[in-house]
């Protein structure tokens, strides 16, 4: 189990694309927007541009992990017969799932740490003002996105399909979460719709706790519901071969 997790870690580091998108892309966005803004608090966003972009970057990182890396990797492993191969050893196939989730959680933590430190040091973005709520929002968001990733892996026959479905979920999610246009600038109905998407609710909760507000119960419930429902469906439909 530990050996599998270490191996998955090594393989992820070798798969440089994942690291680039999850860690470097959000960091680059933060640097780009941070340098081009004047550091004043935007009245409509309720935070500085850099603070907003740091949160958006975190949303992108988590969405890439949950919607694309997890489903594509697991569907590929199944397609290649690796889960079956493990089934005839003393190791169990679900260890590989657990190892994947552990490695991806670690990746999400690294991405978060990079954004927090870079934002704080480079652009004066305060560290999360309510660390407890921030941690809870982080855990719930990750759980909801992992559950959806597992569900995609459960229904996708091949790695390519997994990646395709992941992308089809990824881009609309980004829109509703306010990554392209901040939610504050979206029409009211779209804002409401966004509140009920996993990434939308997640980003709300992360931004609230980051700036010192208590996340709304609605967003926390939405995240929990996604985690439970998608997680249950994934467990129900997951095929090992």
């Amino acid at each position: 189990m530990i050996a599998l997790t270490l191996m998955e870690t090594r393989l992820m580091i070798r798969e440089k694309a994942a690291l680039l998108i999850v860690i470097l892309l959000p960091a680059a966005l933060l640097v780009g927007f941070g340098l081009s803004s004047d550091g004043t608090v935007d009245p409509k966003l309720g935070q500085t541009m850099a603070g907003f972009i740091a949160a958006i970057g975190l949303g992108i990182a988590l969405a890439v992990i949950g919607f694309t890396i997890v489903p594509a990797t697991l569907a590929t492993y199944r397609e290649r017969g690796m889960l079956r191969r493990l089934a005839v050893t003393p190791a169990r196939p679900h260890w590989l799932l657990v190892a994947q989730l552990v490695v991806n959680t670690a990746l999400a933590l690294v991405a978060t740490a990079v954004l927090l430190i870079l934002g704080r040091v480079g652009f004066g973005v305060p560290l999360p003002v309510s660390p407890g709520w921030f941690a809870l929002a982080f855990v719930l968001t990750l759980a909801a996105l992992f559950a959806i990733g597992l569900l995609i892996a459960a229904v996708a026959r091949t790695g390519k399909t997994g990646q395709g479905i992941g992308m089809a979920v990824f881009f609309p999610s980004m829109f509703f979460a306010g990554v392209y246009v901040p939610v504050e600038f979206l029409p009211r109905p779209l804002q409401v719709a966004g509140d009920f998407t996993p990434l939308g609710a997640g980003l709300h909760a992360l931004r609230d706790s980051w700036t010192g507000e208590t996340p709304t119960l609605l967003h926390l419930l939405v995240l929990s519901a996604w985690a439970v429902v998608a997680g249950t469906l994934a467990a129900r439909f997951f095929r090992w071969e």
Binding site: R10, L11, Y77, R80, G81, M82, R84, R85, V88, T89
Partner: peptide, 17 residues
Amino acid sequence: RQGIGVQLQRAELPDHI
């Protein structure tokens, strides 16, 4: 499972291992 070894007809490994 400690006592058997299996070569499956169709099984692959991760590219980078």
